[in-house]
């Protein structure tokens, strides 16, 4: 006999179709009106597994053998995060920035990456290469393109080691877009970068109020022109157009989305990603007109839906985050580290000043000198400390670890935006 999985979400579309999602298998399936009632019944009462439809539900993980202990499955899945053949490094090629955004939480104490840090990274990856199946690098900052020579130099080594040691290498960049010319972008693609996140917070007025250059001037026109030039580049990549909204920019969003459609609606490699401005620890935190929780839950997906209706797809990050383990933050993963420009090692990008976040240093010879008691703080504060998380449908995706920093700072559960509005998200994925 088979029972419904505890990790299912079942939702109906406006057309009476049924969407079913399972966070342990990552499956998402759509059933038409004719099948919907039958599937609903099977997923409520369980099934013997005799019919073709029942077997399909078993294959996708929506029905599981009645003997299976699914909580044990989730516990084992969590243990597999300790595999050492997959590594994620967040690298800060510089911590300087040419912007001074109103909501920024960084204070730019360290500049460009030192020779010691670069050599340490090269040696570390060369030493680890023979154990790896996969290395993912996230170029972060500061503004990483202020140090694109560092990105080029390190990428050359990473790609060479990946080729010699036969592991999969991928990279992405988070940039303000001001220096993202067509030439620089093409170089990033050569460096193995597959996704670039560029923040653009509305049309010219809204964006320039929030994202100024360090000299106080606006940044919109240059970024927009850069982005438009990238449409001429051939290749398979995602440009994630990230928009941070607040209470005072809400009203301008529909016009902004129409402008995005006019400029990027003909190129599906440009995808939207709407997020709320939050008090992330910057010096202007108390003045920020942040939205309340209900507004956030509503507006993220309202804007995303409007963009889809205008022909602008949403970022693959959203459906991707529903996969098993995909909503676990890098800070909570045992084999993931932030390497700062002075070779300091951190866990979380939001709390560089916190002592528990300062893990140690990367030596020039490639040795990681790390305080593993601090690593344990970041990697064991999730579902194992929270009975609600242990019983949640989303547990395999986030493991209670979507943001260990938030849980530590507030004592609240750090549920992801996607999980909070999962039925809405599924309906958008099905569109």
């Amino acid at each position: 006999m088979y029972k419904r999985s505890r990790f299912n979400v079942v939702s109906e579309t406006d057309l009476g179709e049924l969407i079913v999602y399972n966070s342990y298998s990552g499956a998402i399936a759509l059933f038409d009106k004719e099948e919907a009632e039958k599937v609903h019944g099977l997923l409520t009462k369980g099934a013997s597994g005799e019919t073709h439809l029942e077997q399909q539900l078993v294959q996708q993980g929506f029905l599981v053998s009645s003997e299976i202990d699914e909580k044990r499955r989730a516990t084992f899945l969590h243990q597999t995060m300790h595999r050492t053949d997959s590594m994620h490094l967040v690298i800060l090629p510089t911590e300087s920035c040419n912007f001074r955004c109103t909501y920024c939480y960084e204070d730019f104490p360290r500049g460009k990456m030192t020779e010691k840090a670069k050599q340490g990274l090269k040696n570390y990856v060369q030493q680890q290469g023979k154990y790896l199946k996969q290395l993912t690098v996230s170029w972060f900052g500061g503004e990483p393109l202020l140090a694109d020579d560092v990105i080029n130099e390190l990428s050359e080594t990473f790609l060479q080691v990946a080729n010699e040691q036969d592991f999969v290498y991928s990279a992405e960049v988070a940039t303000n877009g001001y220096l993202l010319t067509k030439d620089r972008f093409e170089q990033l693609l050569k460096n193995g970068v597959q996704q670039v996140m560029v923040t653009i917070d509305g049309n010219e007025v809204e964006h320039n109020q929030r994202r100024k250059l360090a000299n106080g001037e606006g940044s919109f026109a240059t970024i927009f022109e850069n982005l438009r030039s990238l449409k001429e580049v051939e290749g398979d990549f995602e440009i994630t157009l990230r928009t941070n909204f607040d209470e005072e920019s809400l009203a301008a969003m529909p016009d902004f989305i129409s402008s995005l459609k006019a400029n990027f609606g003909d190129d599906p490699r440009f995808k939207t990603y709407f997020r709320p401005v939050a008090r992330w620890g910057g010096k202007n935190d108390e003045c920020l007109p942040v939205c309340d929780r209900n507004t956030i839950d509503e507006k993220i997906w309202e804007f995303t839906e409007k963009a889809i209706e205008e022909g602008l797809p949403m970022s693959a990050l959203i459906a991707g985050s529903l996969q098993p383990t995909a909503s676990v933050c890098y800070a909570a993963k045992p084999n993931s580290f932030i390497i700062a420009s002075d070779a300091q090692i951190f866990k979380c990008t939001l709390a560089f000043d916190a002592e528990e976040n300062q893990l140690g240093t990367l030596e020039e010879d490639g040795t990681l000198n790390i305080d593993y008691d601090k690593v344990a703080l970041w990697t064991t504060s999730g579902e194992e400390t929270d009975e609600n998380c242990q019983s949640c449908f989303f547990r395999p995706a986030c493991q209670g670890n979507h943001c260990p920093f938030y849980r530590k700072a507030t004592g609240d559960r750090p549920c992801s935006h996607e999980k909070r509005q999962i039925k809405k998200v599924l309906s958008l994925i099905a569109k």
Partner: peptide, 10 residues
Amino acid sequence: MKIIQQGVTP
């Protein structure tokens, strides 16, 4: 049934 995302063992 239309599979939007294939289910697999993680």
